[in-house]
Design a protein around this nucleic acid. Sequence first.
DNA 1: GCCACTATTCAACGCATGATGACTTCTGCG
DNA 2: CGCAGAAGTCATCATGCGTTGAATAGTGGC
Lengths: 207, 207
Amino acid sequence: MSSQPLRSRRGRPPGRRPGAPDTRGEILAAARAQFAAHGYDGATIRGIATAAGVDPALVHHYFGTKERVFVAAMELPFVPADVTGAVIAGDQGGMGERLARLFVSVWGNPVTRAPFLALIRSALGHEMAATMLRQFVRGALLSPLASVLTAPDRELRIELCASQLIGLGLARYVIRIEPLASASDEEVIALVAPTLQRYLTAHLPGP
Amino acid sequence: MSSQPLRSRRGRPPGRRPGAPDTRGEILAAARAQFAAHGYDGATIRGIATAAGVDPALVHHYFGTKERVFVAAMELPFVPADVTGAVIAGDQGGMGERLARLFVSVWGNPVTRAPFLALIRSALGHEMAATMLRQFVRGALLSPLASVLTAPDRELRIELCASQLIGLGLARYVIRIEPLASASDEEVIALVAPTLQRYLTAHLPGP
DNA sequence: GCCACTATTCAACGCATGATGACTTCTGCG
DNA sequence: CGCAGAAGTCATCATGCGTTGAATAGTGGC
């Protein structure tokens, strides 16, 4: 009995571990999940460390401060330009549907969904996160889309698209109101795509 | 100097205050503001107490627990039925615009906006608040509106309206993306009303 | 095989939080 | 008046947080 130290996870002996484990990466993955689940304030360094099977001090060793963990964890798991490129390429009449399809494909996968969830959850209580969200909307949505539209109020229109998509993500994946939450992707696309299309290209009744 | 106790706010002598001040009401108002500004987790009993000019223990004296302060503070400052009644009364072709106008009028006023902000902010990190939000959407939006619509997927459609309105509130009043945040009410109404109208009454392309 | 460096844990500090219980002062009823 | 109870404060507790500094164990270059 006494020769078996019985350390399941906590109580691992101090000092470097043998081999070359990607501990930093595991911490980042855990952080992403925790921030997505609880938001910036709700997630704790200790919780992240536990989820990564690691001492809390190690998180500080790698990232210094909680804020820095957050910005490191918010690196998107794909390149926004790749994905918005597919939306703006093609006829303008189909942009709404392509945007809707992009949305459900990104939000349908928990891994790609996580950073957005984390960002939105955190933005509500934290100016830093709100700024990051604003910058994402500007850089990854507004700029590319605005370059292919001509209407004078195109920025407004694109942001209305963003507002519909943010609200949809919230209602469907966070608040989970039924029957919206369990509606099929195709059904949601069919309902939302024309809205986006209208925001993007329809002309308004004059003032 | 010694005869002037110099107690600005903290340090008020213990014991009941003379007169009949509505301290409970002041605490509730402070709580509403704090929850709206910081969400459930971000708001603190101490912060609420300070804003109300009162000892933190008094908050517990009146409400017992933080959760109970929250549900007490979330009583809406108007009767939902009064306000949705105006939306469903009238021609169905104008419902979208009436709903959009209701939205900007509720969200345009900080007092009426506060509970919604608090609810949405809190729902993102707290199952209790999420449930309250769900119930509000069901009771104050879905039920009344569903009673005047006939489409088989009308619940879905109404929830899409809700998702658009939630997203709009977030984008405009919390994240404050520009130019959406400073666009005129009329401009926003003109852009959003047709979306709501379409969700409510337009028929979809068949599957 | 030594040695600088990195990876890792441990123990602790200081602070803020939600909650509790004892104590004091005012109000209103009999 | 006398007294029960409501209104109010104070000191305090336990908990959990972010962060720090010291100590230990493995790695890679010479």
